[in-house]
Design a protein around this nucleic acid. Structure first.
Length: 565
RNA sequence: GCCCCGAUAGCUCAAUUGGCAGAGCAGCUGACUCUUAAUCAGCGGGUUGUAGGUUCAAGUCCUACUCGGGGCACCA
């Protein structure tokens, strides 16, 4: 196929209609284009009929001006959409070459670069371009004498945002700027839309999100974060692979969206004519793999939750879930520290990273505090003191009853199902509200990552109870800089308890909102014997936020969900 | 779903108490073969997010809507 394209005559592209441009929201569309006409009808007509004289371009319509230049480039016999351009060197690499003042007797090293024109200055019969590729920026000098007749004509038609290739010599200008002195200019692609002018950058959040491609070019942090995200994921995978964990991929489409308490996105399979859901967690398939004898297993994958959007939530996000046969909560604690430290090392050269105003110290060991202890310390109330907890809640104006909508979320309860429109809150639920209200703000002050472990049992029905204290479950959450970064459990492997939990939750409550829907197949898997195991979940987007000092999840996800314009 | 804030030229931002919508960059024309946020001379560029309302007069005040931001709710 490639060869075919390469052999196509120039005419092929010259007589093809250009890809229609889409009028961006922020450019005013002239009145005559606003009704039934395609917004680009006028431009397309110009492009597809080179025999008639195009109307003089409106010099205030940037797209018109650029389209007119495109026509002129075509008229020179040059392909405005470019061709294969081999052998160009990364700009960052070029900049490391020996760089001497230009001297006709001693030309500098020959180089070939390709990239986007992000700056353009004219000085008489010389153009200076700033050329940027993904590795960096370099100045290019195009002198009318040096670049040839055609090259000069093309140079005069360049706009900011165009892509060009350049062959030339690398050296220094009189002002000492490292520069490629162009010998040959290869036009690679026209930009029909104006680009941001760069110097002031792009500050409008909406503009950046809806033009992420421009954001990547003109906001260095955006590209940096994208690279760091990749680096972190690679580090994570290497670390786990080295420890003998097997990475797997399990289905995204689930018949029963289990493993977490969240609303799923429904969908439908046509041939089977069955309803399906996008997964809300990775847990249940991975545990089946534990039954299947894969003793250390993990998946890094997208999960989908039909929830609100905030600076910490995107409806689709990336989770790491990991299961370790014959391990437990504390196996996961050690592993979590190891993973985080490996990631911190990959990002910087210190065990301390800044996050916002503060410095987070990742050096080990990290504090490990019992839920009950830290609860008692901050609230002054004993976890198991039902009256004391109630009184404390009253004093903090935390309501003792749930609305029916809320009750569904805590359907994983020990007590009878709550079908009434209001119901008294369960003790454990109240405890956790106090925890969120009193303890979490305290935890957020710590500059060290902190494990909180042994949670009230009703909050975690897929978790093993403590043998000596069945009111508590073997779960930890990792708090760093006020965020919940990781969650781990000693997994419940008792199918009888599991089935009872599922059944209990099914009674009288919205299955959509409840954590566990009856999953017969999963119970059957457990009945065949799942090893005791530790399980760990890490929100990858939040991990990347933390380690790249980013305050909003939108900036660690290249294309976060937005409303249609 | 709720509350608050915002939207002005391609980009970044001004516009006093309701009183002629402005600037820098970008664009167009011209000068300049060492500029680099080039410079210099000149020229264009706007249904002030949309739709209504109040007023002699609305970018500015009121209502609704759209989109975005922040918060709440939802959320292992």
């Amino acid at each position: 196929m490639k060869a075919l394209f390469a052999l196509q005559p120039l005419q092929d592209w010259r007589h093809r209609e250009p890809v229609p441009t889409f009028a961006p929201r922020f450019r005013k569309i002239p009145a005559e284009r606003t009704t039934l006409d395609h917004p680009n009808k006028r431009r397309l007509a110009v492009a597809s009929d080179p025999t008639t004289n195009p109307p003089p371009p409106d010099t205030n319509d940037h797209a018109e001006v650029r389209l007119a230049k495109l026509k002129q480039i075509e008229a020179l016999g040059v392909d405005p959409w470019g061709q294969r351009f081999d052998g160009h060197q990364p700009i960052a690499g070029i900049r490391e070459l020996p760089c001497e003042p230009f001297d006709d007797a001693n030309p500098g090293p020959k180089v070939r670069a390709a990239g986007r024109v992000v700056g353009r200055r004219k000085m008489g019969k010389v153009y200076f371009l700033d050329l940027a590729d993904q590795t960096g920026k370099v100045q290019v000098m195009l002198g009318s004498k040096q670049i040839g007749d055609l090259g000069w004509k093309v140079a005069e038609l360049l706009d900011l945002g165009d892509l060009v290739g350049i062959d030339g010599e690398f050296g220094k200008t009189k002002m000492g700027e490292p520069t490629i002195r162009g010998k040959e200019l290869t036009f690679l692609t026209k930009s029909l839309e104006p680009h941001p002018t760069g110097y002031y950058g792009m500050s409008d959040e909406e503009y950046r999100l809806r033009h992420r491609y421009l954001d990547l070019i003109y906001t260095p942090d955006t590209l940096r974060r994208a690279h760091q995200r990749v680096k972190l994921l690679r580090t994570l995978r290497n670390y786990l692979d080295d420890k003998g964990y097997l990475e797997v991929e399990t289905p995204t489409l689930h018949a029963i969206a289990g493993g977490a308490a969240a609303r799923p996105f429904p969908t439908h399979h046509n041939a089977l004519d069955i309803p399906l859901y996008l997964r809300i967690a990775l847990e249940l398939p991975l545990k089946r793999l534990l039954v299947g004898g894969i003793e250390k297993v993990y998946e890094i994958g997208r999960v989908f939750r039909n929830e609100g959007i905030s600076r910490r939530h995107n409806p689709e996000f990336t989770m790491l879930e990991l299961y370790h046969a014959y391990g437990d909560l504390f196996t996961m604690m050690d592993l979590t520290e190891g993973i985080f430290v490996a990631c911190v090392n990959a990002i910087g050269n210190s065990r301390t990273l800044s996050y916002g105003e503060r410095q987070i110290d990742f050096s080990q060991p990290w504090p490990r505090v019992k839920y009950a202890d830290v609860f008692k310390q901050t609230t002054g109330v004993d976890l198991f003191d039902r009256d004391g907890v109630k009184a404390k809640a009253v004093s903090l104006k935390i309501p003792l009853e749930l609305k029916s909508q809320e009750s569904a979320a805590f359907s994983a309860s020990e007590t009878a199902p709550q079908v009434a429109t209001t119901a008294p809150k369960e003790h454990d639920v109240l405890v956790h509200e106090l925890f969120e209200h009193c303890v979490e703000p305290e935890l957020a002050k710590s500059d060290k990552p902190t494990f909180v472990y042994d949670y009230p049992a009703a909050l975690c029905p897929l978790t093993k109870r403590k043998r000596d204290t069945p009111e508590l479950a073997e779960r930890f959450e990792l708090y760093v800089a006020g965020m919940e970064l990781a969650n781990a459990y000693t997994e419940l492997n008792d199918p009888i308890t599991q089935e009872a939990t599922f059944r209990r939750q099914l009674t009288g409550l919205s299955a959509e909102d409840s954590m566990a829907k009856m999953d017969e197949d999963f119970v059957r898997a457990l009945r065949h014997g799942m090893p005791p195991a530790g399980g760990l979940g890490i929100g990858i987007d939040r991990l990347v936020m933390l380690l790249t000092n980013t305050t909003t999840i939108r900036d660690v996800i290249l294309f976060p969900l937005l409303r249609q314009e």
